[in-house]
Design a protein around this nucleic acid. Structure first.
Length: 256
DNA sequence: TAGGCCATCTGGTCCT
DNA sequence: AGGACCAGATGGCCTA
């Protein structure tokens, strides 16, 4: 099979892909143009036909197409499929960009499956963090209600400024420890690409105590045999779904 | 060299 | 009918 176009761009997920709306994005990139030129040169070498050899009349059925027209159709379908896959890879790159792992030229790019599994775990981690934060906020406002009922008996204390009397210190401590630990952890892992210059990025920041390779490489881990890690949201099928976390996300956004 | 990962091609299926 | 989506096949590149 002549998939020679793939050999020129096999490493990058979106090879030479330039976003150029005016030119139709992918179809403007040099690799593809060269590829099209090559294919056209191959297919048009025998008969000098134009792009649409049917010449505009009524549409032919597929069985009525000539060999060249079929070939042309095939090329069109192939390029569409190529563009579709490139769009998919662009989205995958976009996902990689927001993933908290070591970015850099010296760090190998996450594979697609690793990206997806990591993104899933990251979302679960964020959801659990949000849940914990919501709990803390609930605790604070619960205490605030008690304080308000007490202060209403004292006219010298204005209930219009309750935050001035809130026990903010413990809350801020908790939040800072929660957010701070996450931030420092993420910072630590995003800023340490040199720890493994040519090895796949580790996801130990997500609480994995085993190398991410072992965890992510085996899709069977997503079944009930998935390893459980202390303090980490578990993506295994036994622990699914997570209605509390999703509902938390929903309710928080709705309560805004 | 084997295995992992990837891009591409291709034919089938479904949807508009 | 045309396009999107999908999965299998194929071959190339890279690393252990």
């Amino acid at each position: 099979m002549d998939s020679d176009a793939g050999s020129t761009c096999s490493r990058s997920s979106s090879p030479d892909l330039v976003v150029d709306d005016s030119a139709g994005s992918f179809f403007s990139n040099k690799m593809f143009q060269a590829y099209c030129q090559k294919n056209r040169a191959d297919s048009e070498a025998s008969q000098g036909r134009t792009e649409h050899s049917s010449g505009g009349g009524k549409a032919k059925t597929r069985s009525e197409l000539t060999k060249e027209e079929m070939q042309d159709l095939r090329l069109k379908v192939n390029s569409r499929e190529r563009k579709r896959m490139h769009d998919l890879n662009q989205a995958m790159d976009g996902l990689r960009e927001v993933m908290p792992y070591a970015h850099g030229p010296s760090v190998r790019k996450l594979s697609k499956i690793s990206t997806l599994l990591l993104a899933r775990n990251y979302i679960l981690m964020l959801s659990s963090s949000l849940e914990e934060m919501k709990k803390l906020v609930g605790d604070v406002y619960g205490g605030n209600a008690a304080v308000q009922s007490r202060t209403s008996a004292h006219p010298t204390i204005t209930p219009a400024a309750p935050t001035a009397h809130l026990p903010l210190h413990p809350l801020s401590q908790s939040l800072h420890s929660l957010v701070g630990s996450t931030a420092t952890t993420l910072q630590h892992h995003t800023s340490s690409p040199s720890s493994a210059p040519h090895s796949p990025p580790s996801t130990s920041f997500l609480g994995f105590h085993t190398p991410v390779q072992g965890l992510l490489k085996d899709p069977l881990h997503l079944t009930s045999s998935y390893r459980h890690f202390p303090g980490m949201p578990c993506p295994c099928s036994l622990c699914q779904p997570l209605p509390t976390t999703t509902s938390t996300l929903h309710s928080l956004s709705m309560n805004k």
